[in-house]
């Protein structure tokens, strides 16, 4: 009975199934696991062991990638809880949020059109600040209130915000080059 390669990532890294995690513990466990399964440890061994090592190292990387950043971690956690965050199908948002998004977008568009790198950098910082607050809200919904339906909506809001963040970054990059 071998360990299931598909086992849940929280378990793989010895973490509780929660949104708030000890990031240092995650990293420590990640390094420890890669130290045992990484292909560099198996380079001199027969092909069958190399294959096994690659499968495991791939899985450990995927787990770390999923848990390290809060948004993919939340989506994954909701999936484990049997809640479909409806990322592709459910695009209904509260009017207040949509209004806020439009304002952000207009600000980004204006700064981009005017070639205001400074302004874009500021928007970047403000948006990051704002998403930190929303992530706090998400943590409460997931870990304290166990309100997964509410958490799913917060995740969708955060997806919008992340997309906006990328647009700001792209605009900055375009201005630099």
């Amino acid at each position: 009975m071998s360990i299931d390669l598909q086992q849940d990532f929280f378990g793989l890294f010895g973490l509780h199934r929660r949104f708030r995690i000890d990031e240092a513990a995650l990293e420590l466990a990640y390094h420890d696991l890669q130290g045992r399964v990484h292909p560099d440890r198996f380079a001199h061994l027969p092909d069958s062991e190399k294959r096994l090592s690659m499968q495991w190292a791939t899985q450990v990387n995927e787990g770390f990638r999923t848990l390290r950043k809060p948004l993919p971690r939340a989506i994954y956690l909701l999936e484990l809880m049997g809640v479909d965050a409806g990322l592709h199908t459910n695009t209904a948002m509260s009017p207040a949020f949509l209004m806020e998004q439009m304002e952000w977008r207009e600000a980004v568009e204006e700064a981009r059109a005017a070639g205001e790198a400074e302004e874009l950098a500021q928007l970047h910082t403000r948006l990051r600040q704002h998403s930190r607050e929303v992530f706090d809200e998400l943590a409460q919904q997931c870990d304290d209130e166990h309100d997964y339906a509410g958490a799913a909506e917060t995740v969708r809001r955060l997806m919008f915000m992340e997309k906006l963040q990328h647009e700001i970054d792209d605009a900055l990059e375009a201005l630099e080059s």
């Binding site: 696991l33 069958s48 096994l52």
Partner: peptide, 20 residues
């Protein structure tokens, strides 16, 4: 080989539990 890999990973998991 698969069992050996499992044993090694279990040891890692046991290590994390101690840390916690």
């Amino acid at each position: 080989a698969a069992r050996r890999m499992d044993k090694s990973i279990r040891a890692a998991l046991a290590g994390h539990k101690v840390d916690e």
